[in-house]
C-alpha cells in the first residue's frame, strides 16, 4: 500500500515539472518566418576572395576529400593567374582545414545555412563569382 502511494506521489512530482512548463515562454523559433542569425564563426558556405588567391594549391592538397578544384595559368609576369575555383559542396565535410591552411586568408566561410538544393549537380559550384 505504501508502495502504491509512493508511486502516485512520484508520478505527480513528474507532472508538476510538466505543468510548470506550460506557463513558461516557448523557446522555439517559427523557422521560415523567424530566422536565427548564426554566430560569426559559423561554417556556412565556402567562399573565396579572388583578389587574395595566388593559386598556391595548398588548400587543394590539404583538403581531406579533395573537393576543391583550382584552374590557373601562368601569366606573363610568371605569376599564377586564377581561372576558376570550384568546390563540390556535396563532398565537403565543412572541416575548415582549407580556411586554416590558406597563407593569404583567401578562403572564408559565409553565414548562409539554407544550402539545400534539389539536384546533386547544383552542389558543385563556382565560388569565386
Amino acid at each position: 500500500m505504501k508502495q502504491f502511494f509512493l508511486g502516485i506521489y512520484n508520478l505527480l512530482l513528474g507532472m508538476k515539472v510538466t505543468l510548470e512548463q506550460i506557463v513558461k515562454k516557448p523557446i522555439t523559433l517559427q523557422y521560415p518566418s523567424e530566422k536565427r542569425q548564426p554566430y560569426p564563426a559559423f561554417r556556412g558556405n565556402l567562399r573565396l576572395h579572388r583578389d587574395k588567391c595566388t593559386s598556391c594549391m595548398i588548400c587543394v592538397n590539404y583538403c581531406p576529400n579533395n573537393c576543391i578544384y583550382i584552374k590557373y595559368h601562368v601569366g606573363e609576369d610568371k605569376k599564377r593567374k586564377l581561372e576558376s575555383y570550384t568546390v563540390d559542396m556535396g563532398l565537403c565535410m565543412y572541416c575548415g582545414i582549407c580556411v586554416d591552411v590558406c597563407p593569404f586568408s583567401a578562403n572564408y566561410w559565409d553565414q548562409s545555412y539554407e544550402n539545400s538544393v534539389y539536384d546533386r549537380k547544383q552542389l558543385i559550384e563556382r565560388k569565386d563569382i
Binding site: Y39, A41, F42, R43, Y94, G96
Partner: peptide, 9 residues
C-alpha cells in the same frame, strides 16, 4: 557554434 563554427562535427 560560437567557439568552433560547427554544431555537430
Amino acid at each position: 557554434e560560437m567557439a568552433v563554427g560547427s554544431r555537430l562535427t
